[in-house]
Amino acid sequence: MSRQLRWHTLCKHTMLWGYICLAALILAACGSKKYYTPAQVQGTIIFDRSFSAPIATSNRYGAELKDGSLITQDGIIPYNAKIPKKSRFLGESGGYYIFAKGCESVYLIRTSVLDEQAFSNQTCSIKEQNTACAEDELEIPTTMCALSASIKGNLLALIGSDNSMSIIDLNSPKKEQKFSQKGSSVLAVNELIAAPLFLESLVIFPTLDGRLLIVSTKSFTPERNIIISSEKFFNNVIFLYGDETRIFAATPKKLISIVSGQEFSYNESIKDVLFYKGYLYALTLDGMLAQLDHTLRPVNTQKFDYAKLEGIAMANDTLYTFETHGGYVIAVQLSNFAHKIYKTQDTFGKTPPNKLNFYSKGVFYYNKYYYDFERLP
C-alpha cells in the first residue's frame, strides 16, 4: 500500500472515530442530564376545567384564545364582536382592554362594553369620573408595534418592539403625542414584558434594554434613567411594581429595589417575580424560590434541585409554582416555607406539556385547561 493511500485510510478512520466519540459524548451528556425528582408526592392535581378553545397567544397580563375570547387577571371574557380581529391583546388598564392592531394603531375598548360587571369593580365605576372612560372605543394611530401599555386618566403610555416609549393624550382632538423617546436596539427579548407604571406625577417605562426611564407627566421630560443590567440579549424588564415610596424591578439577570432614594439589588438569574403582602417572591433559573423584604434581604428560601420553575399563583396563604420538566405543582406555605408536591394531569390522564401558557392571581392555564388553586384544601 502506498504511503499516500495509507495516510488517506488513516484519515478516514480518524474522522470516523471522531464522529463516534462526538456522538458518544452527546449521548452521555443527554443521559447524565438531571431532572427534579421529589422525595414524596402529596397527591394529584387535575386540570379538569376547560374553556371553548385553546390559548393562541399570551403575555404577562393576558391571553387570547383561538376563538377570540380573552383571559385577564380576573378571568375569562367570552368572545364579543367588538373585540378587534387580527389584533394582539396587551392587557387591561385604566378602565380599558388594550389591543395592538399590527404596527399601525392601538385599540381601546372600555371594560364595561365587554364585561357588564366592570362598572361595579373596575376603574370606570362611574363613567363621568374618568374622562378617558367617557368613550366606549378609541383607536389611536401609532408609529410603533406596541408590546405593552398602561393608562391613567387621559394618558396612554406605550412601549414598542423597537424599544421606543411614548405618552399620548387621549383627550386631545388628534390624540397628541406628549412624549417620545427611542432606546438602543435590542435583538431578543424575554416573553415577560413589563408594562409602564404610572405614579402620581410620573410614568416609569420598563425598557427592552434593561433600564427604567422615569418621565414627568407634568413637563413630559425625562427625570431619571436607572440601569438595572447591561446584558446584550434577553435583557428587558420582566417585572415592575411600585408606589410613591418604593419601586421594584427585575430583568432576567437582576432584581432591584429603590426605597426612599436608596437602591438595593439581588443578583440572580431571575425567572419571575411577584410582590405579595409586603414581600417579593422570586423564582430563579436554578430552582430556588426566595422570599425577600423590601431591601431584597432573603427572609426565606427553598431550593428545589434541578427544578425548572415557572409561574407564581397565590391562594390559601400558599404560593404555587409549576415544575415544567416533571409536570409537578409545588405548594409552599407562606407562614413557614414548608412545601408539598402534587403531580399534575389533564382529564385524559396526561401530564401537561412542559410550559404554562398563562398564569394569573390564583390560576394556572395550559392549552384549553385550567386549575383554580382556591379549590385546593
Score class of each variant (00 low, 15 high):
R6T: 10
Y19T: 09
I20Q: 05
L25P: 00
Y35D: 03
I45D: 15
D48C: 01
S50E: 14
S52F: 06
A56G: 09
T57A: 15
G62D: 00
L65A: 14
D67R: 02
G68M: 04
G68T: 04
L70R: 03
I71G: 02
I76G: 02
I83N: 03
I83S: 00
K86I: 12
G91T: 00
G91I: 02
E92V: 09
S93C: 06
G94P: 10
V106F: 00
I109F: 14
T111R: 05
V113E: 06
D115I: 01
S120V: 14
Q122K: 13
S125Q: 04
I126E: 10
E128M: 07
A132M: 07
D136F: 08
P141R: 06
L147R: 04
L147Y: 02
K152S: 14
G153N: 07
A157G: 06
A157C: 07
D169R: 05
K175G: 15
K178L: 12
S184D: 10
E191L: 09
L197Q: 00
L197F: 00
F198D: 03
L199W: 00
L199K: 00
E200P: 15
E200S: 13
L208F: 03
R211E: 11
I228K: 02
I228P: 08
N236D: 07
V237R: 04
L240T: 02
E244T: 13
T245M: 11
K253C: 10
Q262V: 13
Q262E: 12
E268Y: 08
Y276L: 14
L280G: 07
L289K: 05
Y306I: 10
F322H: 01
I330M: 06
G349T: 07
K355S: 15
F358A: 04
F364I: 15
K368M: 10
F373L: 09
